[in-house]
Design a protein around this nucleic acid. Structure first.
Lengths: 136, 136
DNA sequence: TGCCATACGTTATAGCATAACGCAACAAAC
DNA sequence: GTTTGTTGCGTTATGCTATAACGTATGGCA
């Protein structure tokens, strides 16, 4: 379970995501790292791929954006990165995304898959709508 | 709740999706309708937008593809298009997508949203993995 | 008839993602 | 210490996905 240390590019991308207050696109990351020598999209996408594998970054499919894992330093759900499916609630007004986990949902999905002998690899759960502030 | 009849373009797009045995991209739809006079992506996207509003077509976010609603002629879940959130299990090997619904999951998501005063607009649930046939 | 809403067709452009090439750094095997 | 394999890096080019902005056409209705 020992992961290699992050490379320079991977650290830069993760830092950029950590500093963002909402999910941002790969091209936004690229723009924010031009001063650090980034020139091409692949530099971003390659780093993102590794960070996702390490569970440090999540991709939000419905908006083509990326976000640092909100729990990468916590011990919830049995320890870092031991948790189940990641879910997001994304405000379409302010762009903020809340990450959460729900074991009951995981369980229901596991039951559905088990009954049909479907082997899940990656599950996406995303709610788009208005956060409390923006709905008011 | 009376929807206007589909336009010619909308019918062509829906027919194309109904004939496909798996989700297909907007550009694939475009290619399959060139013989019917389609020339530009917007002709497809505009039809897809209306079909989605009518609940006849679903977009699968994780693969940027579209599929005809599997239940558009059924009376499950209290009648046509009265059902809750649509979920998909997509086989990354053969491309097939199974549409399903789970009220328990809907309920859990509703609870999460309610506690945080989040107003859901559209919810995405997608499991990518291997179907029984492809996993064997 | 005039107005309005909706759909349509076209061109252009924006935004997201990967293929394919070669090079560099580093560690394990010999 | 050289070979070899793996991983990451940089660059160019390309492909796929989606929408902006314009004008036209159609049909309902006052």
């Amino acid at each position: 379970m020992m992961s290699p240390a992050l490379t320079k590019n991977q650290s830069l991308v993760l830092d950029t995501l950590s500093r963002a207050d909402q999910p941002i696109s790969a091209y936004t990351i690229l723009d924010r790292l031009r001063d650090h020598g980034f020139r091409a999209p692949l530099q971003v996408y390659r780093a993102l791929e590794k960070l996702q594998e390490a569970g440090l970054v999540h991709r939000i499919e419905s908006i083509n954006a990326f976000v640092a894992c909100a729990h990468r330093n916590s011990s919830c759900c049995g320890g870092p990165h031991q948790h189940g499916t990641v879910a997001f609630a994304i405000c379409t007004e302010c762009g903020h995304a809340s990450e959460f986990h729900d074991h009951a949902i995981d369980h229901r999905l596991a039951i559905w898959a088990g009954e049909r002998h479907f082997k899940p690899h990656k599950t996406t759960i995303e709610i788009r709508g208005l956060c409390e502030t923006c709905a008011a």
